[in-house]
């Protein structure tokens, strides 16, 4: 399902960081676990095509996304993935409905404020966002923003969902709610998932296969060693 072998050397000032991630996951849901600075976000950006590795290859859901020896490097647009940014990256000048419809309109103009699209309305309704469809992201709460970001990623029917620390910015009560929302969603929609987190509870809830990243390297980890493994949904 997910097959990564990438190398990348980064220089920031005098610091040097070596990313050397090799992992293969046969599961639908893969979790990359690790402390901040371990290279989780870089790995996720490489999968999305937002960072180009120096060498190696990336294969996801049977598609070759990147291969340095093979000269393959699909653009982020061509990879057709859903990416949930840690701070959501909602477009501040567009309404909730325009944000969700963003990926469906490909021209030089943003979707119209009043344009209705079945797929957009479906996700607005599913995530309880219909009442605030004409509002700007700045007027929403953290949980609402995250649901908008999730809806925006799902509308374009992505081939896989990449989640960057999806619950880190939420307070504990909201975190619980959003985890349940995402679990319910995953029970409905069959979609490959790559989730990165530093929270052990996320591992137990979402991981079918887990890798721990340390100092830019991936190590296969045992799911059973993570606390509170709840009953699985699949």
């Amino acid at each position: 399902m997910l097959d990564i072998a990438i190398q990348k050397t980064l220089h920031t000032g005098k610091r040097r960081f070596e990313l050397n991630v090799q992992l293969q996951s046969a599961s639908q849901h893969t979790v990359l676990f690790g402390q901040s600075g371990a290279g989780k976000s870089l790995t996720l950006k490489a999968i999305a095509g937002l960072m180009t590795p120096d060498s190696g290859h990336i294969r996801l859901g049977g598609r070759l996304l990147f291969s340095q020896p093979g000269g393959v490097n699909l653009t982020p647009q061509a990879r057709q993935l859903g990416y949930l940014f840690q701070d959501y990256a909602l477009f501040p000048h567009l309404t909730v409905r325009q944000n969700v419809a963003f990926g469906l309109v490909h021209g030089w103009l943003n979707p119209r404020t009043r344009a209705q699209h079945d797929e957009v309305e479906h996700w607005l309704y599913t995530f309880g966002l219909a009442a605030m469809a004409q509002q700007l992201p700045g007027e929403l709460s953290g949980g609402q923003r995250q649901r908008v970001a999730l809806a925006r990623a799902l509308v374009a029917k992505p081939g896989a969902l990449l989640l960057d620390e999806p619950f880190a910015a939420l307070d504990p009560a909201l975190r619980h709610d959003m985890r349940q929302t995402l679990l319910a969603l995953l029970a409905q929609v069959q979609i490959p998932l790559v989730l990165i987190t530093h929270d052990e509870q996320d591992v137990a809830l979402f991981g079918q296969q887990v890798f721990e990243l340390r100092d830019g390297q991936a190590h296969a980890a045992n799911l059973a060693t993570f606390p509170e493994a709840p009953p699985r949904h699949d």
Binding site: L50, A89, P92, R152
Partner: peptide
């Protein structure tokens, strides 16, 4: 990151400029 988010959603770089960056 907003420009990156738009690209991941399938929008070309030029269109991202007119839809996100310029506004």
């Amino acid at each position: 990151q907003l420009e990156q988010a738009a690209q991941v959603l399938g929008i070309s770089r030029l269109a991202v400029f007119f839809r996100i960056t310029l506004p």
